[in-house]
C-alpha cells in the first residue's frame, strides 16, 4: 500500500523548524541562567534602582496641580486665538447669527478665565 505524502507536509516541517529555531536559544538561555549561572544575590544587587544611588522616599506621592491649571488657562487663550483669526477675516460678510454664536463662544472662554482668576490660579505662588 502506497500512500502519497500530504502536499502540505513540507509546510508543517518548516513551521516546526521555525518554532524550534526561535525557542531553542530561549530554552538554552533559560537553562544557563537557572542551572549553570553562579547565583550571588545581595541587597545592592537586588535593588530596583541601578544607577549607583539608593532610592529614597515613596513613589506614591502627590504632585502639585498648579502647572496643570496653568496649562488649562493657556488653552483658553490658545483656542481663543485659533478661532478669533478666521472670525476677524470673515467678519464683514458674516450674518448676525454667526456673530452672536461667536460672541457666546468668546463669553464661555472668558467665563473660564474669570473663574480661574477668582480661584487664584493666576497668582503664582
Amino acid at each position: 500500500m502506497n500512500i502519497p505524502p500530504h502536499p502540505w507536509w513540507t509546510i508543517v516541517a518548516l513551521l516546526l523548524g521555525a518554532v524550534a529555531f526561535g525557542f531553542t536559544p530561549l530554552a538554552l538561555a533559560w537553562l544557563w541562567a537557572r542551572v549553570f549561572s553562579p547565583q550571588k544575590p545581595g541587597a545592592d544587587k537586588n535593588a530596583t534602582y541601578e544607577c549607583g544611588l539608593e532610592s529614597k522616599g515613596d513613589a506614591w506621592i502627590q504632585f502639585g496641580a498648579s502647572y496643570y491649571l496653568y496649562a488649562i488657562v493657556f488653552l483658553v487663550f490658545d483656542v481663543e486665538a485659533v478661532f478669533l483669526l478666521p472670525f476677524a477675516v470673515a467678519f464683514s460678510s458674516l450674518p448676525a447669527g454667526a456673530c452672536i454664536a461667536m460672541l457666546v463662544f468668546l463669553l464661555l472662554l472668558v467665563e473660564g478665565l474669570v473663574w480661574a482668576c477668582q480661584k487664584g490660579v493666576l497668582t503664582w505662588a
Binding site: P38, K40, D44, K45, A47, E50, C51, G52, L53, E54
Partner: peptide, 14 residues
C-alpha cells in the same frame, strides 16, 4: 566612592 562601590555590587558575577 559609595556610588562606585554600589555599581560594582550591582554587577553580576564574574
Amino acid at each position: 566612592a559609595p556610588q562606585v562601590v554600589r555599581l560594582y555590587n550591582q554587577m553580576p558575577e564574574p
